[in-house]
Simulated assay, not measured.
Amino acid sequence: MGFPSPAADFVEQRISLDQRLIQKPAATYFMLAAESIFSCGIMKDALLVVDSSLRPCDGSLLVCDSGGEFKVKRYRTQPKPHLENLSNGMKEKLPGHDVWETGAGPVFGVITYIINDARTGEFDDCPVM
């Protein structure tokens, strides 16, 4: 037997990425970015944490079904709710106002976190980082 460590009161818990990054496990998905989108801070092969239960707010990045392929698009509310295509800046109409309630439509989920591999050094040329 010994004496307890005087530093025992100051021991911190280990960091859990599950606790920090996932609010609703049943509605959370991990995806890899197929391409870099510098304006959003997404590098090729970045890990995207996507929550399909969230409603987006203005400027949220979404994963959307576009002809059987997932694409990242930005949600905008002005002048009326629409999606913004990040590759060409074009506005895309949302199919209906019940998209969030029914889950129908092109929106798969809201990107909550973007985890890039910082070892590549590609951030040096990225003006938004």
Rank of each mutant, 00 (worst) to 15 (best):
Q23S: 09
R55N: 11
P106V: 06
I114T: 12
V110L: 13
K93M: 15
D9R: 05
G109Y: 12
C40Q: 05
T102R: 09
L62M: 10
H97C: 11
P4S: 02
R14G: 12
A26P: 00
K71M: 12
G121F: 09
D117A: 08
I37H: 04
S16P: 04
T112E: 07
S36C: 05
I37S: 00
P95C: 14
D65R: 02
A46Q: 00
V107I: 15
G68R: 09
L62D: 03
G2Q: 07
Q19P: 03
S66I: 11
T77E: 13
F30E: 01
P127Q: 10
V110Y: 15
F123Y: 05
L86I: 06
E122Y: 01
V99W: 14
A104R: 12
G68H: 06
V72H: 03
T120M: 09
K93C: 14
L48F: 01
Q78W: 10
V107K: 08
A33M: 01
S5I: 03
D18Q: 09
D65I: 07
L17K: 10
L61F: 07
A104E: 07
Q13R: 11
V128P: 01
C126Q: 07
P79W: 07
Y113K: 05
I111S: 05
L83Q: 06
L21G: 08
D98E: 10
D51R: 07
S53I: 08
L48M: 07
M129G: 02
S5H: 02
T28N: 08
S60F: 10
D18R: 11
A8N: 12
S16L: 13
A27P: 00
G41M: 00
K73V: 12
S52G: 04
Y29N: 11
D45V: 04
K71I: 06
V63W: 00
K80W: 12
C57V: 15
F30V: 14
A118F: 08
Y75C: 04
N116E: 00
G68P: 02
I15L: 13
V99C: 08
I42S: 03
L94V: 09
A118K: 10
F108P: 00
A26M: 11
D51C: 06
R20S: 08
G103K: 11
K71E: 11
P127L: 07
A27D: 14
L86H: 04
L21V: 05
L47D: 03
S36T: 13
H82R: 05
N88I: 02
T77S: 15
A34E: 11
Q13M: 02
F10R: 13
K44I: 00
L94A: 08
L32V: 00
G103H: 03
S87R: 13
K91S: 14
H82P: 10
A33K: 05
V72N: 05
K93Q: 14
G68W: 06
G2C: 04
F70S: 07
L48C: 04
V49K: 01
P95H: 12
S60R: 13
I22Q: 10
P106L: 09
H97Y: 01
S36R: 05
I22D: 02
R76A: 13
S39A: 13
W100H: 09
G89P: 05
G109D: 13
D58L: 02
A34I: 01
S39P: 02
A26V: 11
K24T: 13
T112Q: 15
C64D: 03
